[in-house]
């Protein structure tokens, strides 16, 4: 419901699974003037309140040689909510955390690959990274509390077959570090959704019982009966609405918002194989398993 315009400060070096994506691409940053112009354009053309809201994303913003100028450009463009998408390691420095807060950065989007060093650090390929990251988020929150600055922290978890079993721990860690929201972003087309489902559900429950909202992106709501509120905003608009991913589903035409009408035979006639089809098979299998 509160949308952010994503403005990339550069590329490469994202927090993502090295097993899925291989070696990191080299980091490169865009020129300050170019980013500032994009920020101004995003803010100037903002047409739906509340906003304008900008997230500086793409790669680690604290690596940009001119981050203060980028923040200043957002403020000059009358940005109402400014978010940094970061691994938060730089926030361990009270100067960075305090400086960001005072400058107007009150939203933090913090990416982790798991809730334990054994998953996050290993998948990222950087020993000790998770602890440093958590320390950074805590520093941001603690200075915000001292200064009575309202902030919002979102923990993003890119979900793949290598970390799916660690999702409840990731939600727990996010709670512990002071997140307001956790976003599970399913990005792995080869993920066995049937097997992933219990972990996703457990992560959602872990968040709710601890007062932190967990949102799931990239999964059809038909997979999560009873949990459809956790699906991303576009889906929650109204029961029966479909997320964009449904448009790729071979069952889209016959589906009223759930797979109630589909049979295994119908699925068997579908070709050629696609991610959406695998998804649909997963859904049916999951339903049948539950029914049994």
């Amino acid at each position: 419901m509160i949308r952010f315009a994503e403005v990339a400060v550069g590329s490469g070096g994202e927090v993502r699974c090295s097993r899925c994506h291989g070696a990191q691409q080299p980091v490169s940053y865009r020129p300050t003037a170019e980013i500032a112009a994009e920020i101004a354009m995003a803010c100037g053309s903002w047409d739906e309140p509340p906003g304008p809201n900008v997230a500086l994303a793409g790669t680690e913003p604290f690596g940009h040689p001119d981050l203060p100028a980028l923040v200043g450009a957002a403020i000059d463009a009358h940005c109402r909510r400014l978010c940094l998408e970061t691994d938060a390691v730089a926030m361990r420095s009270s100067q960075n955390a305090g400086g960001s807060l005072m400058a107007g950065v009150h939203h933090l989007r913090w990416t982790i690959l798991g809730g334990t060093p054994g998953v996050h650090d290993v998948l990222l390929g950087t020993p000790g990274a998770l602890d440093l990251s958590v320390e950074g988020v805590r520093s941001f929150r603690s200075i915000a509390a001292e200064e009575s600055i309202p902030v919002s922290v979102t923990t993003v978890v890119p979900v793949c077959r290598h970390n799916v079993h660690d999702l409840p721990a990731a939600a727990g860690l996010a709670v512990d570090a002071g997140a307001d929201r956790v976003l599970l972003r399913i990005e792995d087309g080869g993920l066995d959704l049937t097997a992933a489902l219990p972990w996703i559900v457990a992560a959602c429950d872990t968040g709710v019982v601890n007062g932190v909202w967990v949102e799931v992106e990239g999964i059809p709501f038909c997979l999560l009966p009873g949990y459809d509120l956790h699906l991303s905003d576009a889906v929650r608009e109204r029961a029966g609405a479909k997320p964009p991913i449904c448009m790729d589903c071979p069952l889209d035409a016959m589906c009223a918002g759930a797979l109630a009408g589909a049979s295994a035979d119908q699925l068997a006639t579908l070709s050629p194989p696609s991610f959406a089809e695998r998804l649909a098979v997963s859904v049916l299998h999951a339903r049948e398993t539950r029914a049994e």
């Binding site: 109402r80 909510r81 400014l82 939203h107 902030v151 919002s152 307001d180 709710v208 909202w213 509120l229």
Partner: peptide, 22 residues
């Protein structure tokens, strides 16, 4: 019952995000 509790948490998260502004 469960959706009421979910709605409370979701709303609280949205309120925090709305409140956190420049």
């Amino acid at each position: 019952f469960r959706d009421l509790r979910r709605a409370e948490v979701l709303a609280s998260s949205l309120q925090a995000a709305y409140r956190a502004r420049v």
